[in-house]
Simulated assay, not measured.
Amino acid sequence: MRYLRVTSQDRSGNGRADTVLLRFYEEVPGQPDKLMLKASSVDINADGVTDLQCGGDVNHDGKDNAKDEKLIRTFANAFLKLEWFNQGKSWQRYIKVFAEDYYHDNSPNVVRLHLHEGTGTPRNQTLIYKASAHDTDNDGTLDSVVYLGENGDGENICSRAQEQLIKEMGRTFLKFKWHH
């Protein structure tokens, strides 16, 4: 399975996230997950919008260009709105993002966002919240959101704005084409 691990940090110490770090991993059975690509985005003036992006061919089209920078910026700006960030250069809080294809037609219909707090490989012991965007009719559009708290009871209801944010992150993640 492929996944994206996203970490946001407040490196300036002003109480707002200013750096978004994207790490593209591939799980390798019996071995540590393999880091395949790194990208980052920085909000220089603390306005909640990233100003500088760097990475590589994050949309996996064989070119490292402005399309990749735009994709990094779009994902990073949505991620900043979650306000799930670390103080300083800590890596404790992060989100694992991955897609699933329940219809087995090479068209992912679920994007999962797992919010973790802890170190090492993402695992159940560090999982705090789960959110997912679903394409319920397999038409290529993420049309519903499921959000569960740390105990999985579904009592945490997300706002309309949060639902839209989860869908936006899901749509953008799919444009990375980082799924099997």
Rank of each mutant, 00 (worst) to 15 (best):
Phe79Asp: 13
His116Ser: 02
Lys67Cys: 09
Glu26Cys: 10
Val110Trp: 05
Gly149Ala: 04
Gln92Ser: 13
Ile128Arg: 12
Lys167Ser: 10
Asn65Pro: 02
His116Pro: 03
Asn156Trp: 09
Gly140Leu: 05
Leu127Lys: 14
Ser40Gly: 12
Arg2Lys: 15
Phe98Met: 08
Asp105Arg: 00
Pro122Ala: 12
Leu174Pro: 09
Asp68Ser: 10
Arg23Lys: 11
Arg2Asn: 15
Gly13Val: 07
Arg171Cys: 10
Met1Trp: 02
Tyr3Lys: 05
Glu155Cys: 06
Val145Trp: 12
Thr19Phe: 13
Gln162Asp: 15
Thr74His: 10
Tyr129Arg: 07
Asp33Gln: 00
Asp61Thr: 08
Leu127Ile: 05
Pro29Lys: 00
Gly154Val: 15
Leu22Lys: 06
Ile157Gly: 06
Lys70Tyr: 05
Phe98Trp: 14
Gln92Asn: 13
Val58Gln: 09
Leu22Ser: 03
Glu117Thr: 13
Ile128His: 09
Leu142Ile: 15
Asp18His: 04
Val111Arg: 01
Tyr129Ser: 09
Pro32Leu: 03
Ser107Trp: 00
Asn59Trp: 11
Ile166Met: 09
Phe75Val: 03
Gln9Thr: 13
Asp61Gln: 02
Gly149Glu: 09
Ile72Tyr: 03
Gln9Phe: 06
Ile157Lys: 09
His180Ser: 13
Ala161Leu: 12
Ser107Gln: 11
Val97Cys: 05
Gln92Ile: 12
Gly88Leu: 06
Leu80Met: 07
Ser8Phe: 00
Arg93Pro: 03
Gln164Thr: 10
His104Thr: 09
Leu165Phe: 06
Asp47Met: 08
Lys177Arg: 14
Ala133Arg: 05
Asp105Leu: 03
Asp51Lys: 00
Asp18Pro: 00
Met36Ile: 13
Asn156Phe: 10
Gly15Pro: 07
Leu21Gly: 00
Glu150Lys: 14
Phe98Ile: 03
Arg160Glu: 10
Leu115Phe: 15
Tyr147Trp: 09
Lys96Thr: 05
Lys130Leu: 10
Thr74Gly: 00
Val58Trp: 01
Leu22His: 11
Glu117Asn: 12
Gly30Phe: 12
Arg123Asp: 15
Arg171Tyr: 00
Glu163Arg: 14
Asp33Glu: 06
Pro29Ala: 09
Phe176Val: 00
Met169Lys: 01
Gly48Trp: 04
Asp33Tyr: 00
Gln9Asn: 11
Gly13Pro: 08
Gly154Ser: 04
Leu113Tyr: 06
Glu155Ser: 12
Thr172Arg: 04
Met169Leu: 15
Asp153Ile: 15
Arg73Ile: 11
Thr19Trp: 11
Gln92Asp: 13
Glu163Tyr: 03
